[in-house]
Each structure stands twice: as structure tokens, then as C-alpha cells.
């Protein structure tokens, strides 16, 4: 739900302000890759209606955001292309290699799924780099990134709960480790987010 909230915040910003200033297209494209490689089981592994609908929402909203940033006349002009310089392959290639080395089963779907877990953990990096270069971070963008970080942190709590409370729950070290790293990457952002919130000041990251 927090993940869904983050997407709503981002779409709200882009749609109402007709601006994507401070939003990293690189992170959005990495997330698109994460969802495509993870949800290849969309039609073969039915978990629940909720699960299926959420998968479709995550996939379509990410592509919608990318379309907005690349294709929409006004939104496109507000994109900080010169600042959003992170290279995709810096993250994609190491994650692919890691997925080929560390996975639970050597099948195409499983390796791609593992790759998506690793890539998700680091997909925020281009966004954090851009954020550091952005002088005026608007509230919606700040809250968007906060929710994006918070959902993985909440997963950590959920994993602990499931581990102790569910009979048929199996340890999933790859997901747990990646989730911990993903949350740790946000630690610095969370610190400044709460600091600015407490002081009632505009969010600003130190250079």
C-alpha cells in the first residue's frame, strides 16, 4: 500500500503540476525493468486477485510515468536531463552477474526474478543522486521518495512477523538481504526527511 501511495504521489505531482522536475527517469526505467522481470509469472502463478491487480498496477503505472516523462509535451520539458546522469548499466550489469551467481534455482524465470530483487534494491540510486543535485525539492517529490523507501522497510517488519507467525513460511535469504540493503540505502534520506519535517523546513540534502 505504501508502494502504491508512492506511485500515486508521483502521478499526482506529474499530472497536476505538469512537471517532473527532480524525478529521475533512470530510476523509473530501472523500476520498469524490475517489474517486467519479476512479474513474468503474471499469468502462470496465480496468488490472489489482489496480487494480480497490484502487479498490473505497478507495471502499467511505471510505464505511464515513463511515457509522461518521455512523451508528454509539457512534462518532458521539465525533465532535468543534464542532472540525471546515472548510467543504467552500472547497476543492471552487476545485478545480472550477481543473479547468475547467487540464486536458488538455475532456471530462466528464477534468475530473472532474482535479478529483479537485486535491481530493486539499488534502483533508487539515480533518484538519490538527482535529489542531491536538486535545489528545490518539492513536497510531493520528497514524500514520493519517502514512501518508496518506507515500503521495503515495512516489508522487513512483515518478514519478521511471517517468520514467527506462519507455519509454512520458508526462509528467503536473497529477498531478506536485498531488502535490508535497499532499506539501508534510504537511511541517509530518511534522516534528512525527518529532520526537515521536525523543523518544518523544506527538504534539502547536503551536497
Amino acid at each position: 500500500m505504501t508502494h502504491l501511495a508512492s506511485i500515486c504521489l508521483l502521478l499526482l505531482k506529474i499530472h497536476t503540476m505538469k512537471s517532473c522536475a527532480g524525478v529521475s527517469l533512470k530510476t523509473q526505467e530501472l523500476y520498469a525493468l524490475v517489474f517486467v522481470t519479476r512479474y513474468l509469472d503474471l499469468f502462470s502463478n496465480f496468488v490472489s486477485m489482489y496480487n494480480t491487480i497490484m502487479k498490473i498496477i505497478f507495471l502499467s503505472s511505471t510505464f505511464g510515468i515513463i511515457w509522461y516523462m518521455r512523451g508528454h509535451k509539457l512534462v518532458r520539458q521539465s525533465y532535468d536531463k543534464e542532472q540525471d546522469t546515472f548510467r543504467h548499466y552500472f547497476l543492471v550489469i552487476p545485478c545480472m552477474v550477481l543473479a547468475l551467481v547467487i540464486h536458488s534455482k538455475f532456471t530462466l524465470l528464477e534468475v530473472l526474478w532474482t535479478f529483479s530483487i537485486y535491481l530493486e534494491a539499488v534502483a533508487i540510486l539515480p533518484q538519490l543522486v538527482l535529489l542531491q543535485r536538486t535545489r528545490n525539492i518539492d513536497n510531493l517529490t520528497g514524500n514520493y521518495i519517502f514512501c518508496l523507501g518506507a515500503y521495503r522497510a515495512l516489508y522487513l517488519l512483515n518478514w519478521i512477523y511471517r517468520y514467527f507467525m506462519e507455519k509454512n513460511y520458508h526462509a528467503q535469504w536473497i529477498t531478506w538481504m536485498a531488502g535490508m540493503i535497499q532499506t539501508a540505502i534510504y537511511a541517509d534520506f530518511f534522516y534528512y526527511y525527518f529532520k526537515s519535517w521536525k523543523k518544518n523546513e523544506r527538504l534539502k540534502l547536503p551536497a
Binding site: 509469472d41 496468488v47 496480487n51 505497478f58 513460511y169 526462509a171 529477498t175
Partner: peptide, 10 residues
């Protein structure tokens, strides 16, 4: 061998 976790998360 550790049992594989069911893929029920998003």
C-alpha cells in the same frame, strides 16, 4: 536443501 519460498509477495 532449503525449501523454496512461495512467490506471493510483490
Amino acid at each position: 536443501v532449503a525449501k523454496e519460498a512461495e512467490k506471493d509477495e510483490l
